[in-house]
Amino acid sequence: MANEQVTVAEEHRGLVKEQFDDSLQQYQASNLGMWLFLATEVLFFGGLLASLTIYRYQYFHAFAIGSHFLSVFWGGTNTAVLICSSLTMALAVRAAQLSKRKDLIVFLVFTLCLGILFLFIKFGEEWHHEYLEGLAPGVNFTYHGPHAPHVELFMFFYFALTGLHALHMIVGCGILITLIILAARNRFKEHFTPVEIAGLYWHFVDIVWIFLYPLLYLLGGRFGH
């Protein structure tokens, strides 16, 4: 059986940690562990999302005004960037599963570049712009139109949610850099679990953005403004 040979090979190279019986058990445990961590993350973002829902329900118009200050163009572009990075990440995992080292490194580098592009647009283009516009609550908030306090509340949630998301992106980029270095050292030969786990994390961060984009940028529709 090819499987048993692999198992022996992985154990021989010290890739199966001593607490595990075999590489299958290790693979399943690592996968389950990552999913449990993602469940935690859902509730971590969940506290913010619940607060956003409450206030959106109560101050719908103020939140719509706040939402119209955001750039749909850059938000949409960033959504596309992240979806592309998810594709390259999925392909990277596939390359790791097939032990194709060159493909793995290429796709990981692509993913990293897209991640950095996302952060660049987020901070360099959007946050910078909104800060200059006087839309940064607690720091530089100069909007004095209707519903000003609640518009500020919306802008806070915008910064909090995108900031928390960006923090996860930064962590994700760090993980990608580590993976690239390890892949260059040929550490994932016939041992793709770390790449797959990192992929799960990266896709999750993508999913968070899939929800943040409509919730923040498209809130209440863009018609008639």
Binding site: T40, F45, G46
Partner: peptide
């Protein structure tokens, strides 16, 4: 632990 602790963290 998994489901409740993240909520207090964000709060």
């Amino acid at each position: 632990f998994i489901l409740a602790m993240p909520v207090i963290a964000i709060t």
